[in-house]
Computed example of a mutant assay.
Amino acid sequence: MLTQLALGSVLTLATIIIATLSWWALEAVLIRMHGWSIRPPHGPRLMFVLALSLVWTLMMMTVAVWVWAIALLELGIFATLEAAVYFALVAFTTLGFGDVLLPQEWRLLGGMAAANGLLMFGLLTAILVEILRDTRLRQRGGRH
């Protein structure tokens, strides 16, 4: 039990660190785009910033799922990469179809993966809101 909790915690921490480090990279790109993004017309530029941010968010969720899938595969829990990715994605999104299950000795990892997914969705949603808020403020001349 403690092994599962420790491993789940390490995997969760790894995905959060990856997401926050990549946030710095995205922030650097957005700062470089600052002059462009505040010029009219604002609507298309805001949509571009939003699209860029959403693609980044999708990439971060994909990376997090792959981190879990590779760990599950390396532990020998699943025989194929497809099964490991499928389980990680279903757990991460908390769909929980139940058609692919972890063996009983590893079942706590399913809950840890779901908790990691919830944390990632929360973190990435907060980052998206901050990007949109900041972009709109800059477009309105409130912050440079």
Rank of each mutant, 00 (worst) to 15 (best):
V65T: 07
V67H: 05
A51M: 09
V55K: 08
A71Q: 01
A25V: 13
A71F: 00
V49L: 01
V55E: 05
W36P: 02
L58K: 06
A51W: 03
L54S: 08
W23K: 13
W66T: 07
F48A: 13
L73Y: 10
L11Q: 00
E27Y: 02
L13H: 04
L73K: 12
T12E: 03
W66C: 06
T12R: 02
G43Q: 11
A28T: 09
M61E: 09
L54N: 07
H34I: 05
M60I: 09
I16L: 12
L11K: 00
H34Y: 14
S37W: 02
S9E: 11
V63C: 03
L54H: 05
L21M: 15
I16C: 10
V29N: 14
I31N: 12
L30P: 13
A69F: 01
S53I: 01
P41D: 11
L50I: 04
V67G: 06
S22I: 03
L46V: 08
I17G: 13
P44L: 06
W56S: 07
A71H: 01
E27H: 03
M61W: 04
L46W: 04
E74S: 04
A25H: 13
A51L: 09
E27R: 04
F48M: 12
V10W: 01
H42A: 13
L54C: 10
V10H: 01
L30T: 13
V67D: 06
I70V: 10
T62A: 14
T20P: 08
L58P: 05
T15M: 01
I38V: 15
A71Y: 00
I17V: 15
I17T: 12
W23I: 13
W68K: 01
W24D: 11
H34V: 08
L30E: 15
L30M: 15
V55C: 11
I70F: 04
G43T: 11
S53D: 02
I18S: 05
R32F: 15
G43E: 09
M61S: 05
I38P: 04
W36C: 03
V55S: 09
G35C: 05
L21E: 14
T15K: 00
W66Q: 05
L50K: 02
V67W: 05
W68F: 01
M33Q: 15
V29P: 12
H42V: 11
L11W: 00
G35N: 14
S22G: 06
I70Q: 06
I17K: 10
E27I: 01
S37V: 03
E27M: 02
G43D: 09
P44F: 04
P44C: 07
A28K: 08
T20D: 12
T57F: 12
I38Y: 04
P44A: 05
P44N: 06
A19T: 14
P41Q: 10
I16N: 07
A19Q: 10
V49F: 00
